[in-house]
């Protein structure tokens, strides 16, 4: 029967090469049995009735999937480690891209924020594509091991588990990397033009704001060290909360001081000529600093409350 042959050929096309012949042969026998049973009931069957039998069995792709269910690219037992590796590697790559692009941006003649964002996205994605592909292929290969060869990674003991704590005590990687990226960006923004003054890099801050930011740098370095500590511990404790309250308070005070000492940035009017007014740029920068102050104030209140609950 031509229609049955065509159906089996369509199923075989969806199957892996080494299983095509065997499954096709068996499927053919099963279909012929079904048709034979129908003939025993009704007498000779028409092509339409055979087509109905095939339709009931399901589309060739769904039948092929029933015989050979797809295996996930990354095996389930290795998925948590895969996701963790991706987060860490992509986070580190983002930080490296940020450092590279910020140094180029600050030493460049054009101070376009849009160009900076575009360069950062492009630099990060260039590295991220490669990292993502390499990590995925690596884990796909590791996951192909037969199940009995799975490494026994569960060398743990209940006694060594961290305290149960509250749900907020767990620090996410995303939060750590976004803090690290912000702090590194700030350090580069403050210090790069001073280190690389002979390359033509100029500070974007007014001298008054730059002076206070230079004095503020140790606090930013403490915040960076704190983030690195969080990477190791991943659980808020009293010392970490106290440190975070101190850092956030310092950020709040500096933000307030900067807001009272406008202008904040040295704006090169010729670069923005015709695009936006200087007043609107200053207003936008003021809003940004205000938002930073609000976030810092929120973190002070949040961490103080947590300190009493821990």
């Amino acid at each position: 029967m031509d229609i049955v042959e065509r159906y089996i050929a369509a199923v075989q096309r969806e199957l892996p090469e080494q299983k095509r012949e065997d499954i096709g042969r068996e499927l053919n026998a099963n279909i012929l049995d079904k048709i034979e049973a129908l003939e025993a009931q009704k007498g000779a069957v028409t092509d339409t009735e055979v087509a109905e039998v095939l339709y009931e069995m399901g589309s060739p792709r769904s039948v092929a999937l029933q015989f050979c269910p797809p295996t996930p690219l990354i095996a389930t037992w290795i998925m948590p480690l895969y996701l963790n590796t991706l987060y860490v590697v992509l986070g580190v790559l983002f930080l490296l891209s940020l450092i590279g692009v910020t140094s180029n941006w600050l030493s460049g003649t054009q101070m376009s924020l849009l160009l900076f964002m575009k360069s950062l996205a492009s630099e990060f994605l260039n590295h991220a594509y490669f990292a993502f592909t390499a990590i995925t292929i690596g884990f796909a290969v590791i996951g192909r091991k037969p199940k009995n060869e799975e490494p026994q990674t569960c060398t743990w003991s209940p006694e060594k588990l961290p305290p149960a704590g509250k749900s907020w005590q767990h620090i996410s990687l995303q939060s750590i990397f976004s803090d690290l990226a912000t702090m590194l960006f700030l350090v580069m923004l403050i210090w790069y033009p001073l280190w690389q003054s002979n390359s033509g890099a100029q500070s974007i801050f007014t001298p008054e704001v730059l002076t206070i930011l230079l004095w503020f740098t140790p606090v930013i370095l403490v915040a960076i060290a704190h983030s690195i500590w969080q990477l190791r511990v991943r659980l808020w404790n009293r010392t970490m909360l106290l440190l975070n309250i101190a850092v956030s308070t310092a950020f709040l005070l500096v933000s307030l001081w900067i807001m009272l000492n406008t202008p904040i940035l040295r704006i090169y009017s010729e670069a923005w000529e015709g695009a936006v007014s200087i007043a609107s740029i200053e207003r936008s920068i003021f809003v940004v600093v205000f938002v930073v102050a609000i976030i810092a104030a929120y973190e002070v209140i949040r961490d103080t409350r947590r300190l009493f609950r821990i």
Binding site: I23, E26, D33, Q66
Partner: peptide
């Protein structure tokens, strides 16, 4: 395959072909 399905149906166990044939394989 087909006779097994008939036997199961006669015993009151209704099983879809799409489940049975891949299962025995």
């Amino acid at each position: 395959g087909y006779s097994l399905r008939q036997q199961l149906q006669d015993a009151g166990v209704d099983i879809d072909e799409g489940t049975l044939y891949p299962l025995i394989r």
